[in-house]
Amino acid sequence: MAIKARDRIRAKLKDEQTTVRVLLAHPMHTGRGENEQGELIPAEFIQDIRCWRNGKEVLTIKCGTATARNPYFSFQLTGGASGDKIMVRWVDNLGAKGIAETTLS
């Protein structure tokens, strides 16, 4: 059995920009893949990812099935100060949810 991976988030301040990198642990089944027995694996993929900085929503990502397994995202936020709280929440098509949080150091 695979070890259940955790959602990861990193934020870094450089040149007055915050670089946020997010790695979510999710199988992202498209609904077209088959398991070893040749049965279709039902679709299970992240649909909605949101990012907040200090409680303010800054970014929304809507994903289709073509987002890679264990989705990775990297983006910049303008400005930023040490102590900023950056939070990412996701919801998949089956209603499963996850939260990843980090504090800018």
């Binding site: 920009q17 498209t30 900085r53 303010k56 929503e57 800054v58 970014l59 929304t60 990502i61 809507k62 099935t65 073509a66 987002t67 890679a68 397994r69 989705p71 990775y72 995202f73 990297s74 983006f75 910049q76 936020l77 303008t78 400005g79």
Partner: peptide, 16 residues
Amino acid sequence: VDLTPDVALPFKSMIK
């Protein structure tokens, strides 16, 4: 991806 003025590019990700 919906961006607010707080977000700057580049945006990176992985697709299938």
